[in-house]
Design a protein around this nucleic acid. Structure first.
Lengths: 207, 207
DNA sequence: GTTAGCCTCAAACAAGCGTTTGATTCAGCC
DNA sequence: GGCTGAATCAAACGCTTGTTTGAGGCTAAC
């Protein structure tokens, strides 16, 4: 008889996600993970084979869903408000926001994404680019349709700026400290709105 | 008789910088550092006291200079073209660009900065905030003077966006791959110009 | 009741970690 | 020459790391 609601695998994934978010991959030991998950140390290698594979599974569990949400939101934006830039940017930013507000560890996952970019975990970056690159290409196409005279090189630079700003803002890596009065949810809501305004103006800047 | 041109301390710092840039702090062992620096393992604790202190010193060696350059450039910008935003942003962005182009490991250091954001070592963040927070405060003041009606909260959000985008772009973390035809120097030059335009428009966006 | 297969467990493994030790080298100074 | 203090060294310290082992519990099928 166990009092846990989730399977051993899921508890390991969630514990790993939270610790990776807080400390990074290399700095997080499997013993920390299994202790937090209330699971025997050997369970990780039994269920996932290795630590590296655990890292990959932590990604798969959420990233597929977020990419689908982004593409779906993009489709809606293009249909309902064609030619407008802000809905497109919102389609990119808001699924990350929604994930960050998910009560089941989504906030941690957003930070894990930031770490994945920062750690050139060689295989991991290639994995992300291979598996989710097409999403960015879709958004690039949509943005091109919203901004007249935006060259390809500027477009890609600005997408990089957007991605960088999004990752750092959503991860609380920057200067901004959430005031103790406001909830984490509305804090992120504001960040997303501010970023969409900021990036929208940025994408429309002329050269 | 030694064939080295630099002191033990400097060789340790440079080796650590390169390895931290490539692998992150936690994933880099002191044995890797001392092996690359061609130095005995005990030298790190002799000269720096601990690994954590070595990390701090890697920062101090370059960050002091970059901060001074930023403040000097800001002063010039405010004197020569008062009220204009782009020179202020250039004063923030271009010293980072110059550092990234420095031939003696500056490019590595820019990536180390990105890792410092990502790994979020608490001791390191406090060190950075204590030592270099006043620089950001100076820029915040200058930007406020250039953009009418920009509230404090939006100002700080946008500074975060700028910092995130800068770090991201300078570290080659994003989509943009340098075309084989162009030099790394002119590649970064373009990134800086594009970022200044992007951020300038973003800071001026109304709410 | 027995068997089979999945799962969990305490314990141990070799390897690597950051740090410390004590001896040794070497330059500069009285 | 003798002394001093900084710098370097090989070796070892105690500890944590990811991973493996083999015994045993449990459920379900026969």
């Amino acid at each position: 008889m166990t009092t846990h609601h989730f399977s051993t695998k899921d508890r390991i994934l969630s514990a790993a996600e939270a610790l990776f978010a807080r400390q990074g991959f290399a700095a997080t030991s499997l013993r920390q993970v299994t202790s937090r998950a209330d699971v025997n140390i050997a369970a990780v290698n039994y269920h996932f084979g290795s630590k590296e594979n655990l890292v990959n599974e932590v990604f798969r569990r959420r990233m597929d869903q977020m990419s689908e949400e982004r593409l779906a939101a993009l489709k809606v934006a293009c249909c309902e408000r064609p030619g407008e830039l802000e809905p497109v940017l919102a389609a990119f930013v808001e699924p990350a926001l929604a994930m960050a507000q998910d009560r089941h560890g989504g906030a941690d996952f957003v930070r894990v994404i930031a770490r994945a970019y920062a750690e050139s975990n060689d295989g991991l970056r290639k994995f992300l680019s291979d598996r989710y690159g097409h999403v960015l290409r879709e958004f690039a196409k949509a943005i091109t349709g919203c901004v007249e005279g935006l060259g390809k090189e500027d477009l890609y630079w600005r997408l990089d700026f957007l991605a960088g700003a999004l990752v750092y803002a959503m991860s609380d890596f920057g200067l901004i400290k959430r005031p103790s009065g406001t909830s984490e949810s509305s804090h992120r809501q504001r960040a997303a709105a501010a970023l969409i305004r900021f990036a929208s103006a940025g994408f429309k800047a002329t050269n």
